[in-house]
Design a protein around this nucleic acid. Structure first.
Length: 207
DNA sequence: CCATGATCATTA
DNA sequence: TAATGATCATGG
């Protein structure tokens, strides 16, 4: 079980493990922002399949930067869920979506946040969550999804913003910057993100 | 190029 | 300072 594999590493410095498995954490003064996620996938026994969604398995592995405030674990940031494909978003309802497939069964890792550009990070906590289609929380998340979906259908992809949604949002997520080959700006893409209050809920549910 | 792994940096 | 938008490395 992946959970137990991960729990063995609680309290350890993930950077040392990343080094051991040959994962780049920094390069030319910039951080590989995904390194924590990659090392956790290896530690869980997932064979680091970077390919598309279903991870090949029945759950989704996520991590989030957190810190302790008065002995309580508090998420610092939002969490990326999955990319938005405009065609698929139009065609699929929430429970048919990739977004739901990833959310309904996930393993959630809290990692220590040591400030911006910190090179070290310990694994704090590993929890697993399973949702049902009739959970109250899921119904509200579905409402957010439907809102975003309707906006896409009516106003188009460009009308979406990160402001929409109570629990989840449609934020920009892409490689960014300028394409050195063409000199043009790279296309803007979006992804579903879980807002911090949703992550807090996850922590509460695990208690 | 695009999707995956998220965090960084600027705005409001 | 919270929230939104921009950005980085990797691999198929």
């Amino acid at each position: 079980m992946a959970i137990n594999n991960l729990k063995k590493y609680i309290g350890q410095d993930l950077q040392k493990l990343a080094l051991k498995y040959g994962i780049t954490t920094y390069k030319a003064g910039k951080q590989n922002k995904g390194w924590k996620g990659l090392i956790l996938e290896i530690l869980a026994g997932l064979e680091n399949n970077i390919s598309k969604a279903p991870n090949g398995l029945s759950y989704e592995l996520k991590s989030v930067s957190s810190h302790y405030i008065k002995n309580k674990l508090v998420p610092k940031e939002t969490m990326a869920i999955t990319m938005i494909n405009p065609q698929e978003l139009k065609a699929h309802s929430f429970f048919e979506s990739h977004c739901w497939a990833k959310l309904k069964s996930l393993i959630f890792c809290a990692v220590m946040w040591h400030g911006k550009n910190a090179k070290t990070s310990e694994l704090l906590k590993v929890i697993s969550l399973d949702f049902a289609e009739n959970d109250d929380l899921i119904k509200e998340v579905r409402d957010d999804y439907d809102f975003i979906r309707n906006k896409l259908i009516i106003n188009g992809f460009d009308a979406l913003t990160g402001k929409d949604g109570k629990w989840i949002q449609a934020r920009t997520k892409g490689i960014g910057g300028i394409n050195p080959q063409t000199g043009k700006k790279r296309p803007v893409t979006r992804a579903f993100y879980a807002r911090p209050i949703l992550i807090k809920k996850f922590f509460e549910m695990a208690n």
